[in-house]
Amino acid sequence: MSNYYDSKDLVDFPNITEFAKEQGEAFFQYYGSATSAGKLTEREKTLIALAVAATQKCPYCIDAYTNKCLSLGISNDEMMEAVHTGAAMVAGVVLAHSMQMRKIIKQKEM
């Protein structure tokens, strides 16, 4: 294995059912249902998926969902806005955890 991440591996995603067929198939059924249009449009769900992909730093998901956004006619600035929402959430999550730090500081300092 020369690289941990290889873009060609994306096409192998459907094969994650290997070695655990039942769970893999159950996942794909859930995945398909969760990412298809429901109360939210396919467009909205795709932007959510893109933001999650970026925050989770998954290169396969970023590739797949950037392409899907392009295919759905989602503009570059809309995609970037979604990524900023994800980035702001991550920043907020980190800063919210400073509460632990602040509580400890207040407990420990004279």
Binding site: A37, T41, E42, R43, N67, K68, L70, S71, L72, G73
Partner: peptide, 12 residues
């Protein structure tokens, strides 16, 4: 890249 879902694009 390939085109997306026709119905979704039409609506947008």
């Amino acid at each position: 890249y390939l085109p997306g879902a026709q119905k979704a694009l039409e609506a947008e």
